[in-house]
Simulated scan of single mutants.
Amino acid sequence: MSFIISLLVLSALIFFHELGHYFAARAMGVYVEVFSIGFGKKIASFHKWGTEWKIALIPLGGYVRMKGQDDSDPSKKSYDNDSYNVKTPIQKIFILLAGPLANFALAFLLYFIIALGGPSILSPVIGNVVKDSPAFIAGLKSNDTIKSINSVEIFTWSDMAKHIETSTGSLDIEILRNNFIEHKLLTPKVTETTNMFNEIIQKKMIGIGSAGVTHKLELTPSETISYAIEQTVFASTMIFTGLKKLIVGEVPAKELGGVISIVKITSDAAAYGWMSVLAFAALISVNLGVLNLLPIPALDGGHIMFNLYEFIFRREASEAIVIKLTIAGWAILFSLMGLGIYNDINRLMG
């Protein structure tokens, strides 16, 4: 069941990405020959609006094949009026950007739906207290609820963590314990920990862990939109940062995940309900948008670079160079996919 859910999620995200390219191409007067979800042998297809719409055997991507544009053979070009090749570099860049932008728009929509349903978020309820930590010395205990820090009201665990991390000096922490309000005075301590990229960092902490208690956010219409925007921007920033760290070697290559990880995480998300599946789908949608903007010739970002070259120098890039770089781009992509699957298998085998 989890595999089917993962397949449906991936296919839907790919569909929206390619739909962005499709509508942008049609808007620019470019004839779209094929709209495919998946690669390889055709499983099913139909013809509508002059385009062949098909589902292929390997569901790890998709493509829109426009007249005069074929990644499998960059030398195939057409200079008819409805061809991709006769459009200006700006028009072609618009078509190329439309796919990733569709993924960002879809992520926003998914986060908006999550916001409407009342997203669950960690409450500032203390679980474990580290022995000899500032919290332990101040007398904080499990099941204490943090109500405010230095008179600033605290609603979520994230609010509390950010306030502690950016604080200066001592903190007056107001807690709710057994229906009574108490105040505890303590000073955060810079402690070694790991971040979301598994890097060791120094961070101000007080030595407490979450109890895992959650509550639903009640959002106004304007807060719902703000939530969707903030989550989309956060996801984009996180993925861009992760990619940068992976490229420069700050994050080891063994952290890269593949399709098996996607299936597993989708399965885990499904166990927590459809809201979790939507949140994961939004994150993967942003991931697709970001990855397709990378300047790798086989991706949208690579084609954008070729068109920027044409726009700046008023001539197309050499066909021989385009073909060589495209082959190199596919080699990079398949290598990354292989590495991701290899890491996934290693994780499964422990």
Rank of each mutant, 00 (worst) to 15 (best):
S6A: 15
S148T: 07
S158L: 13
D70G: 02
N178E: 15
F234P: 00
L246G: 08
P119W: 07
T187Y: 04
A56P: 06
F23D: 00
L19W: 12
K131Y: 12
S133H: 04
N307Q: 15
M196D: 14
F16C: 00
M337K: 01
G273N: 03
G338E: 06
F3S: 12
K147V: 15
L278N: 10
A161L: 11
L217C: 07
D159S: 04
S6T: 04
E310D: 12
A235V: 05
S222R: 11
G118H: 09
E192I: 10
I95Y: 11
P134E: 09
K203Q: 13
M160S: 02
A98C: 03
V129R: 04
P221S: 01
I95L: 13
L246P: 09
G40A: 10
L288G: 01
N179R: 14
L243S: 01
F104L: 00
T51L: 01
Y31G: 03
S210T: 12
E182D: 09
S236G: 13
Y84K: 05
E250F: 02
I137V: 15
K147L: 15
T88I: 02
S78I: 01
I55M: 08
V322P: 04
D71Y: 00
P124C: 12
K244M: 00
F334L: 15
P89Q: 11
V277D: 07
P119L: 06
K41G: 00
I114G: 07
K41V: 03
G61A: 07
A105S: 06
F306Q: 12
I149K: 04
R177F: 08
D82G: 14
G273W: 02
A270Y: 04
S285W: 02
T88L: 07
E153F: 14
N287C: 03
L8V: 14
L8F: 11
I323R: 14
I164W: 03
T168M: 04
V130D: 08
Y227N: 10
S285A: 08
A115I: 13
T266K: 08
G118P: 03
R65I: 06
L97Q: 05
R65Q: 11
A282R: 04
F108Q: 01
I175P: 10
A269I: 05
G258E: 11
M160W: 01
G118D: 01
E153W: 10
I126R: 04
I181F: 15
L278Q: 15
S72C: 03
T214Q: 10
A24W: 10
S210E: 03
Q231Y: 15
Y84N: 09
S318T: 01
